[in-house]
Write a protein that binds this DNA or RNA. Sequence first.
DNA 1: TAGTGCATGTAATGCGTTACATGATTTC
DNA 2: GAAATCATGTAACGCATTACATGCACTA
Lengths: 178, 178
Amino acid sequence: MDRSAVRPVILGMLWLEPRSGYAIKAAVDRTTRFFWAASYGQIYPELRRLEEERLVTGQDRPAGGRRRRIYRLTAAGERVLLDWLRGGPPLVELRDESLLRLFFSDALPPGEASALLEDRRRGHEQYLEVLRGLAARGGGPDAPSVELTLRWGIDFNEWGARWCEDQLKRIRAAEPAA
Amino acid sequence: MDRSAVRPVILGMLWLEPRSGYAIKAAVDRTTRFFWAASYGQIYPELRRLEEERLVTGQDRPAGGRRRRIYRLTAAGERVLLDWLRGGPPLVELRDESLLRLFFSDALPPGEASALLEDRRRGHEQYLEVLRGLAARGGGPDAPSVELTLRWGIDFNEWGARWCEDQLKRIRAAEPAA
DNA sequence: TAGTGCATGTAATGCGTTACATGATTTC
DNA sequence: GAAATCATGTAACGCATTACATGCACTA
């Protein structure tokens, strides 16, 4: 299943519920995009490959005069999903520009350096607003594990905001001059 | 400075100290790679572009019979670095396969689902070992902000391991059956 | 009737990794 | 004498984003 990064998220979304490519993209944007994004340019071609491999089946189900193709997981597709869930060491990649700025912040005068920490804290708080909005608007009773990852996002950003504050305090304690 | 992701890390590394492309790559691998990676295929071409734009200057400084080109930041280069440090909203990208597995873990039987949380905890702990190794072997007295980001890595992974444990407890409390 | 949402799809582009090639020097 | 390290560089490849094109349907 190392074919493509989009494969597992498609299989997973179809395991939760059969849908169209468009609906998969919409679900990703509401949920996994924070830690696993996907674009149309990945989803549609991959759906065709998955169908060729008989891991999903698609049927045309026009809604009104609007064409639409609904995909569902086959038994083979579910097996591949389960194998992936049980599979080897998962990859984790992080690209955090704010952390990189912190890394080089000695290049700035001291006052401005701590401003970077405040910016980072603000970033966490903005993220929190978005995630709390999602949690409130929850609407559909999500599967427990779906809620678990939302929980992670909220907890992580709370932790991150606190971390920034703690470091700011530490810095201010170390150099009490103004 | 949105040219390329590698630009800021090169300028920053040269601000810390003039070095060769090879040494930049080595420094990145020891430090920022956890949140901002870079490869030779990015570094060498970008160094030439930076030199054309007069943001860095290179001089040939063979060590023994071994050819070597040492780059240093120009005044213009430092200005660009400072602008970037003060610049707009920083990008954050996360690709976390372990979280994606957690998201779809309802597809697994209950016992195996909590194994995913344990895997994740182990992942954090392995990461911690690496980072603590770096912190111990510290050797060179790093700039304060360089230590700040290492601190972040350690604190984050400690938090992450604890989070997994907490969720495991919660799950076990909810379904006390065996 | 204009705008928004549903729906599918592709082409261009950009970006980054991997793998390879080359060669000197130091260390075991 | 072999292996590791220093050092520079490029070509191929894969992957993902962006932007665009198309068209129907609903609603304000």
